[in-house]
Write a protein that binds this DNA or RNA. Structure first.
Length: 231
DNA sequence: AAGTCGAACAACCGCGCAAAA
DNA sequence: GTTTTGCGCGGTTGTTCGACT
């Protein structure tokens, strides 16, 4: 049986200290992103490689943008989500300086609610037939779609709700189908969109790593025609 | 001022995939 | 052809902090 990659005892968990961050940064600056499994020991970190990788990719990488998402970025996320579903790494790959985790969090905390407030199902980008309570009483949302008292879309509810795009089960057909339907739902969005039209982000870590990401392997993005949509 | 609630976000977990052995 | 290994992904959880009562 395969042994877990993080089964070593006495490993630190939880928040990273500044010292740990610095060790990781120093090591990667010196040696580059080598084998994540062996990196912690080599760098003198009591963390599993996975944890180091995550910390580096999501927080320590020098090319990270951080800060609020712009309107353009938000638009792009919505469009890409309509195309790709919950393929956060692919979506993030088109947003320079953004990570999949960041995009995912932003989607769940901001965009998702925003769409719901507009009566759009964030799972399939279709207009809900039943008018949501939020539309009947728009005052429940302010301009930033920050729900003042929206218990209906509580954290648990949103995270536990079934996703249309189950991981690994979304074919490009399904994705394009969603996109087609979303055109009607989102008339303001120009979904005459192809991957080729989207400005490429700076190479991600995985791309730099000479490894094709899992997601691109699954979707074969290297052949853009797969995802080009025409209305 | 204290307590409660919810949003935001960092981090972890489990799984699938591809490459290597 | 099968098993093992490591990476990367998406989903979920935990923690922090600000707003509100």
């Amino acid at each position: 049986m395969r042994k877990p990659s993080c089964d070593i005892k006495d490993l630190n968990k939880g928040a990273w200290s500044k010292q740990e961050d610095q060790k990781l940064i120093d090591y990667i600056n010196k040696h580059g992103e080598v084998c994540w499994r062996t990196l912690p020991q080599a760098a003198g970190l009591h963390r599993c490689g996975k944890s180091c990788r995550l910390r580096w990719i999501n927080y320590l990488r020098p090319d990270l943008k951080r800060g609020n998402f712009s309107e353009d970025e938000e638009d792009l996320i919505v469009k890409l989500h309509a195309l790709l579903g919950n393929r956060w790494s692919l979506i993030a790959g088109r947003l320079p300086g953004r990570t999949d985790n960041e995009v995912k969090n932003y989607w769940n905390s901001h965009i998702r609610r925003k769409l719901i407030s507009k009566g759009i199902d964030p799972n399939n980008h279709r207009l809900n037939h039943t008018i949501p309570a939020t539309l009947q009483n728009p005052s429940m949302f302010d301009d930033n779609s920050k729900p003042s008292k929206m218990k209906e879309v509580s954290k648990k509810e949103t995270s536990k709700s079934p996703q249309v795009y189950n991981s690994g089960e979304v074919s490009s057909d399904a994705a394009s189908g969603e996109a087609e339907s979303s055109c009607a739902a989102l008339p303001d969005l120009n979904l005459d969109l192809s991957i080729a039209n989207i400005p490429p982000a700076s190479p991600t870590v995985s791309e730099n790593n000479n490894h094709e990401s899992n997601s691109s392997r699954k979707l074969h993005l290297e052949s853009p025609s797969t995802l080009v949509l025409f209305q």
